[in-house]
């Protein structure tokens, strides 16, 4: 089964393995397979699903997401920036007397402070998430597989990268084949001579 749909792998003997890709039919299958791969001690591997599968983080042994910390920092930055901006502009640099109100007055600053907190937090959430995920990234070995197109439809995949210290052409394949996949393939790239 291995290396059948890889990029021109058959003609060129000089190929380097990139990753193993195992395909599963159901969320349950991929869930239990992920537990096996986790218990086997792999590190550079991933599960690919069309939607987030409940409990998969635990099945993969992932740590908690760090996005919230970025949001916290950004939110505090937004709040402080808004406060300093209004204090400096209306209270210090050029106080405007309108309706006899003081130049610097905290109650009237609350709405803008709130809005900038939310705005910068949202930037933190979205761009922080993309940053941690290293997206956009349009090149990835999983895209070499034609079967992988169904990953955004109704199939579930596990990929184990060749860069993983435990990666072994025979053992890793045997491990994946023992988890009831519907298909296992090796993705390789040509090595330039």
């Amino acid at each position: 089964m291995a290396s059948e749909s890889q990029k021109k792998g058959a003609q060129s003997p000089e190929t380097r393995p990139l990753l193993f890709l195992a395909e599963y039919e159901t969320a349950g299958d991929v869930f239990h397979a992920a537990e096996h791969v986790r218990d086997a001690g792999y590190e550079k591997w991933d599960v690919h699903t069309p939607f987030p599968v409940h409990g998969m983080d635990k099945a993969m042994g992932l740590k908690d997401s760090k996005v919230a910390w970025i949001v916290l920092v950004m939110g505090l930055t937004g709040c402080t920036t808004a406060f300093l901006m209004m204090w400096w502009m209306n209270g210090h640099d050029y106080p405007l007397v309108i309706g006899g109100k003081p130049g610097f007055s905290l109650p009237s600053m609350i709405p803008v402070m709130f809005e900038l907190t939310v705005l910068l937090s949202a930037f933190g959430a979205v761009f922080g998430m993309l940053g941690i995920n290293q997206l956009p990234k349009h090149w990835h070995p999983v895209f070499f597989s034609d079967r992988f197109e169904r990953c955004s439809d109704d199939r579930f995949f596990i990929s184990i990268e060749a860069a993983d210290p435990k990666f072994d052409l025979e053992e890793t394949k045997a491990l994946l084949e023992g988890t009831h996949p519907s298909h296992v393939e090796l993705i390789s790239e040509e090595v330039e001579q």
């Binding site: 992920a34 690919h48 599968v53 998969m56 992932l62 997401s65 941690i132 995920n133 990234k137």
Partner: peptide, 13 residues
Amino acid sequence: LGWRGSNRHWSNY
């Protein structure tokens, strides 16, 4: 953006 349904991504997502 090169989304590949990765669970490591879904977790942050």
